[in-house]
Structures are given as C-alpha cells and as structure tokens.
Lab assay of single mutants.
Amino acid sequence: MQRVNMIMAESPGLITICLLGYLLSAECTVFLDHENANKILNRPKRYNSGKLEEFVQGNLERECMEEKCSFEEAREVFENTERTTEFWKQYVDGDQCESNPCLNGGSCKDDINSYECWCPFGFEGKNCELDVTCNIKNGRCEQFCKNSADNKVVCSCTEGYRLAENQKSCEPAVPFPCGRVSVSQTSKLTRAETVFPDVDYVNSTEAETILDNITQSTQSFNDFTRVVGGEDAKPGQFPWQVVLNGKVDAFCGGSIVNEKWIVTAAHCVETGVKITVVAGEHNIEETEHTEQKRNVIRIIPHHNYNAAINKYNHDIALLELDEPLVLNSYVTPICIADKEYTNIFLKFGSGYVSGWGRVFHKGRSALVLQYLRVPLVDRATCLRSTKFTIYNNMFCAGFHEGGRDSCQGDSGGPHVTEVEGTSFLTGIISWGEECAMKGKYGIYTKVSRYVNWIKEKTKLT
C-alpha cells in the first residue's frame, strides 16, 4: 500500500490518463441519441435557420407576430419608411378606419389613436360632414345658397324668414311668412316636400332668348283662358290664391305678392273693366268669414305684352289694390325667389296649380277651390304637342294621358313649387288646347323671366 501511494504521488498524470480511459469505455446513459432527441424537440425550422439574422431580410411573422416588435424591426421587413409607417399605425392600436367614419364618399386613412378623412370636392370637416359648395344638395341650405369668396357655403332665406341657429334652416321672422300653410287642420295635408338634388348652379339658368321682337298675326285659340281631375282644397291650404270678379264672377285667378299687390295673367284683364279681388276665398257660393274683398285701382301688364300681336306672350300683369290686405292664416303671400332659384325650383319637376275653373272641358265651374299636382314636361315634348308657338318664356306641365289639367277660369292662378315646406311661385296658368285632352298640356308663363320686374313694381313704400 505504501508503494502504491508513492507511485500516485510521483505520477499524477498517469492516474488522470487511467481515469479518462475508464470513462470513455463506459456506456453513456444520461444523453439520448440524435434521433430520439429530435422526437422530443420537434420544432419547425425557421426561415433563416442556421444563418445569422443580421444578414437576412426581415420576416413579418418572425419579427412582429411571434413577439412584439419595434418600429426598427418592422422597418427591416418593409425596407421602406412609408410602408412601415402605414403598417405601424394599425399594428400599434388597430384600424381606426374600420367603422368607416368618413361621410359623403370620403376616404379614410388610419393613424395612431386617430384617423384622417380625405374629402371629395365640396366637403370638409373631420368626417367630411361639412358642405362647402352650393353645387351639392344646395349646400344643405333649406332655401338659398351662395358661395363666399373663400368658396364656403353661405345660406340665406327669402323675405319674412331668418336663418336658424344651425345656419342652414329657415324659420319665420314674421307672423305670416310667405308660402307657408298655417291653418292647423290643413298642415297635415301639406304636399310632399321637395329635397334639393345635386345641381350645376353655374349652368342652372337656361341660355334662352326671349323672342321679344317676333311679330306674329293673332292666333285663334280655343278655350285658351284655361282644375280638371283635381281635388277639393281645404280652407287655408292655398292662402296665396285669390279669385278675380268682373263682368262675371271667378273669371280668373291670381296670387298675393304682398298686402297691396296681386300677380295674374295679362290676358285676364281689360282696361276700363272694374275688377274686384277676393282673398281668403274657399267656396265661392258661401260666406265663410275668411274672405277679404278689395278693388283694383291700377293694372300693370308687362311692358312687352301686346294682345294685338299675341294674347299669351309675356302673359303676366300686376294688380294694385285700393287697401292693403290683412295677412292671416287664410290670406298669405306666395314666396318669389330670384331668377336663378325660381328656375331651379321649376326644374324640380312638379308643381301645384289651383283655381275655381271648370271641372271638365266646357263644363261647370268649381264651387270649392280645386288643386292638382302636375309634372313638368320637357321642352321637346311640349313643342311636338301643339302647332302653336311655345315661346321661351312659357313652359308645359300636365299629363300625356289627359284627364287632369287646369281649365277655363283658372287662368292667372299660381303654379307653385314647394321647397322644404315653403311654396314659391314658378308659373302662372296661361293657356292650353281644350282641357285635359290626351297628348295636350297646360301652358304656363315662366315666372323666372319676370321676377325682377315683379319685385321692382310691387315694392311697398
């Protein structure tokens, strides 16, 4: 034993070699072989497995989906700052455009905790909710729209109204504003409101030439003092309507412009014939205590009207009353817009006519005020429907199939267009061939041609 100890002390290297040989010859039971080890760690190889990531292109799944990435790591994937920024906006807080917040056709661009709407022409605001041009839906104005110097929408209202708090709607500024039905039992019968379409306001006024200088022999019209197929109006439903009495009662109609003036057809009036105007009328054979009678003290036909040349060209006249009318729910003026808007309103496509005229061709006159909704007829169809001249200051309205029309005794009465609950004068009943005849239409004086003249002559002093 002493000898062994001496050998170990003198030859430590020998001992180490012996131990190493023993270990190498022993069977290893701690580690699995290569094949079995792979069965336990069965993990798919990654895209760049075996390579240094710093030297390969980034992978979106590896960089940002398996674990949260930084902007720089995302930049490695896209290799483009702009594309990385677009991805980053949604990656950080989701897609803010998912709810489609942009209105009126706006395009949404996502941002971090926010979004941006790219608005089409005519709109602005956070969600493109603000109209900035009158060309689109009248700028959301209830009545009139004008573009300011910086191309912003400025709404306005006709006389007797003021802008509401929203700067879009119009509200009454006087007790009985024009064009409004205020009798409670008839307010439910107000005709369907007309909503502004998209309009090209630059070209809204037709490029028409008034044929002022045409000389033409007097034409022989049949029954051209021209509501057939209409309905009984309720008291106060058309408070701007008046009836004219002269040699015979209810020979023509008219509309209240203001307390002192009536507008009617020029062919209705004769110099030297006494005319009485009755406002607030409903049943011409009954006294309903809503009527107001006034005498006409002055007749002003349009300066281009000449019955000797043509009885229905420039067929418009103004009547001055001896005493002002007292405005109330049964006696209310009709609204008159400017030339541009009167023309736009007419193009809405349908209007209402009213009167006490004959209820059928050569038949009896109506006792109760009649009204009828009539569609506008395109000019080409209008011209083809008659052998008589249709001037540019006239328009056609009615039904091709016949059966409904204005008729004798309705002449001078109103053709009105309702705009968001307020009625505007767009025409004056003038003439036609018979009444409600198939293929024939009622012919009306186009008020847009005469609004400046009306307003100039009827100013209240």
Rank of each mutant, 00 (worst) to 15 (best):
R3Y: 09
R3I: 12
R3Q: 08
N5S: 13
M6L: 13
M6R: 14
I7T: 11
L19D: 02
F31D: 07
H34N: 13
N36K: 11
A37D: 01
N38D: 15
K39P: 15
K39H: 12
L41Y: 15
P44K: 04
R46H: 05
N48C: 04
K51N: 15
E54C: 04
Q57A: 10
Q57T: 06
G58W: 04
G58S: 11
E61D: 15
E66F: 04
E67D: 07
K68P: 05
K68M: 08
E73T: 15
T81D: 09
T84E: 10
T84K: 10
E86K: 15
E86Y: 11
W88E: 15
Q90W: 06
V92S: 13
G94M: 08
G94T: 12
Q96W: 06
C97E: 01
E98K: 10
E98M: 07
S99C: 08
C102N: 00
C102I: 00
C102Y: 00
L103D: 06
G106D: 00
C108H: 00
D110K: 06
S114W: 04
Y115K: 02
E116Q: 11
C117D: 01
C117K: 01
C119I: 00
P120G: 07
G122Y: 03
E124W: 08
E124A: 06
N127W: 05
E129H: 04
C134P: 02
R140Q: 10
R140E: 06
E142F: 03
F144E: 00
C145N: 00
C145P: 01
N147E: 14
A149T: 09
A149E: 14
A149F: 10
D150H: 09
V153N: 04
S156Y: 14
T158W: 02
E159L: 07
G160T: 09
G160L: 01
Y161L: 02
A164R: 09
K168P: 02
V174H: 07
P177V: 04
C178E: 01
G179H: 01
V183I: 12
T186W: 07
S187Y: 10
K188D: 06
L189D: 12
L189F: 12
A192C: 04
E193F: 07
T194H: 14
T194K: 07
T194P: 08
V195E: 13
V195I: 10
P197H: 14
D198A: 14
V202F: 12
S204C: 05
A207R: 06
D212F: 10
I214H: 07
I214Q: 12
Q216G: 06
T218A: 07
V227M: 10
G229V: 08
G229S: 11
G229N: 07
E231V: 11
D232L: 09
K234N: 06
P235H: 07
G236F: 05
F238D: 01
V243A: 12
L244T: 02
L244H: 02
N245W: 06
G246D: 06
G246R: 05
A250S: 11
C252Q: 00
S255G: 05
N258L: 00
E259C: 04
E259I: 05
V263N: 01
T264G: 02
A266F: 02
H267A: 04
C268L: 00
V269R: 02
V269Q: 03
E270A: 12
G272K: 09
T276D: 05
V278M: 07
G280P: 02
E281M: 12
E281G: 13
E281Y: 07
N283F: 10
N283L: 09
E286R: 10
N295K: 11
I297L: 10
I297M: 07
R298T: 09
I299W: 06
I300C: 04
N304T: 05
N306K: 11
A307E: 07
A308N: 09
I309L: 08
N310C: 05
H314A: 06
L319D: 01
E320R: 02
E320W: 01
D322T: 03
E323M: 13
P324I: 03
L325M: 04
V326P: 02
S329K: 14
K339R: 15
K339T: 09
Y341T: 08
F345P: 01
K347G: 14
G349S: 08
G349H: 08
W356G: 03
W356D: 02
G357H: 11
R358L: 07
V359G: 15
F360I: 15
G363L: 07
G363Y: 09
A366E: 14
V374H: 02
V374G: 01
P375W: 06
L376E: 02
L376N: 04
V377F: 02
D378F: 03
A380M: 07
T381S: 05
S385C: 09
Y391C: 07
A397H: 02
E401P: 14
G403S: 14
S406Q: 14
Q408I: 14
S411G: 13
G412S: 07
H415R: 00
E418G: 05
V419I: 13
V419C: 04
V419R: 05
E420C: 07
E420M: 11
S423T: 10
F424L: 01
T426N: 01
I429C: 07
E433D: 14
E433M: 08
E434Y: 12
C435L: 03
A436L: 09
M437V: 14
K440D: 14
Y444A: 02
T445Q: 05
K446W: 01
V447W: 01
S448F: 02
N452Y: 08
N452E: 08
E456Y: 10
E456K: 14
K459E: 13
